[in-house]
Design a protein around this nucleic acid. Structure first.
Lengths: 311, 311
DNA sequence: CTGTTAGCGCCTTCAG
DNA sequence: CTGAAGGCGCTAACAG
């Protein structure tokens, strides 16, 4: 075939919008240019923002993203992971926090171990016991920072609205909470901890249960969604925020600044977490030395929902 | 091979967690069990909720979802669509609203037309000029309902915070706005329309520009995000909602109920839109007669941000 | 009805 | 350097 013909063919292909079949290419090269992303729930702004970050850098390198929600159920998570490996994704990103307990690790290891031994890359942007390279975020430390803010405002009766206790991220956040109390000589009172779902509704209910049995001067929620739910419950009861009780969130989802009372919270750079996670996965895939321990820093964001303790 | 051997192999496969290679299967069968979803921005709660709905029903039928954001840019959208067809997705779901103008239709048709002529299925859950089977939602009608609510409260100076004018969904919503004014004998005043980005920030700015030049008694935003932005701007200016001015949103994203002032809005059943879209795509893929014109109904949700006009 | 074979579209190898 | 051939893992069509 002459050079001229070659050009003609290429042009014709271009004109006809011909696109090489990625499936066939993937089968031949054992590279699908595809990354599987497991989240707990895509419609949760926390995950949605991370996915966006992932998409931005993965997309720039022509990787397509499979996104699936596990609903914080081990079975679903395993099913999703299985589907990813069956689809020959090049990498899997664990955005969904791992679960506490040995069943999680063993179930997940069974799938991911095989995946990795076949050359698959696994990275994590969350707290998980599965030993994968990860983007580090200090959940415990960030929680301590928040507690410190509350303590500085004079609070000592600090309640904690915990998320789903089976999540490792909740364990870490709770650990930070306890540690902070400890360093400030505040005894830990289990009655001041109330778990609930990681949602507005969950936070609202947990808060309702909490104020039935205790009267804290401050309430720290395990995430912004729960804090927003707390705001709602408090509002219904005529308890003013921050005059009667301070409320703090965690994550700084976009909406935190626009809640009924603008939320004091800890900023977690979600999109950045996603970007770093994707970069880490790409580096590993292309055999580049990954950026030295990619880590995302938190930042205390003080808004209107916390104030000096009154009386 | 004997029956016994067969069983043994199957068991062994099960034990080893063997999963057939979906890529190879896809190549052989020309069915990838994969659906491409184009949204404007996954981190926007509007799209995140729709994607969740899509995922739920597609996942139940073992379809995996590619999700990509176009950022409301034609070039990106075309690139995303091309990538989807190159990936041999079985169906493409247009969640991202189409754009006004002939370039959109021709650019998108070039890719999608080829895709369809090769047996691909295209469906839409949004306003788009591309002639694909779709889940119907009456944007104009829902907007009229909202305007009617405002009119019943005595408002006649109604401003409209429009979204990105190049979006077809905005065109529809604006058309509904104008039509409603017309049926109530309220002259349409272009000064009372201010466009902005479909975001909190965009709404905040548009609202700021608006109140520089006009004093409406009610402000209707093209979506909840913009309405939330308007709430912010109004709050900064000391303008009370709903006492001084009523504000209404559109979509009823989860946060609408928890905004600084709980938003009166129009509920768009987002997750349902996604579910219907996925079902439509699946029906078409499996050659089933699709549900008769799948359509999603809106509902007026009156909360605290709108009130009878004062004075 | 089981067992074999060709081929999906591409890439990589090897020969020319 | 260009061109032909084999194979990626699977399924469909076929022969036995």
């Amino acid at each position: 075939m002459s050079e001229a013909t070659r050009k003609l063919v290429l042009e014709a292909a271009e004109e006809l919008g011909f696109e090489p079949n990625r499936l066939a290419r993937a089968l031949a090269t054992a590279r699908s240019q595809t990354i599987g992303v497991v989240v707990h729930d895509v419609s949760d702004p926390y995950f949605a923002e991370i996915v966006r970050g992932l998409e931005d850098v993965a997309g720039a390198s022509q990787y397509a993203l499979f996104v699936s929600s596990s609903d914080r159920e081990l079975d679903k998570e395993v099913a999703v992971l299985r589907a990813f490996v069956a689809s020959q994704v090049d990498a899997i990103v664990l955005v969904a926090s791992g679960m506490v307990g040995p069943e999680y690790l063993s179930a997940v290891s069974e799938v991911l171990g095989r995946f990795e031994s076949l050359g698959g890359v696994v990275v994590s942007t969350s707290e998980t016991s599965y030993p994968a390279p990860r983007v580090v975020f200090d959940n415990a430390g960030a929680t301590r920072t928040m507690v410190e803010h509350l303590v500085e405002l004079g609070h000592r009766q600090i309640a904690y609205l915990d998320g789903p206790e089976e999540l490792q991220v909740c364990e870490r956040r709770l650990a930070g909470f306890k540690a902070a109390l400890d360093t400030h000589g505040i005894p830990f009172d289990p009655k001041l901890v109330e778990p609930g779902g990681f949602s507005i509704e969950g936070g609202a209910r947990a808060c309702a249960r909490l104020i039935e049995k205790a009267r804290p001067t401050a309430i720290l929620a395990a995430n912004d969604l729960m804090a927003i739910g707390a705001l709602e419950t408090l509002g219904e009861r005529g308890i003013r925020v921050p005059e009667d009780v301070s409320v703090a969130g965690f994550d700084d989802i976009e909406f935190a600044a626009h809640a009924a009372v603008p939320l004091t919270t800890v900023r977690v750079p979600l999109a950045e977490l996603g970007r770093l996670g994707a970069r880490l996965a790409l580096d590993l895939l292309e055999g580049r030395p990954p950026a030295t321990l990619p880590s995302a820093e938190s930042e205390l964001v003080v808004r209107k929902s916390t104030a000096r303790v009154s009386a």
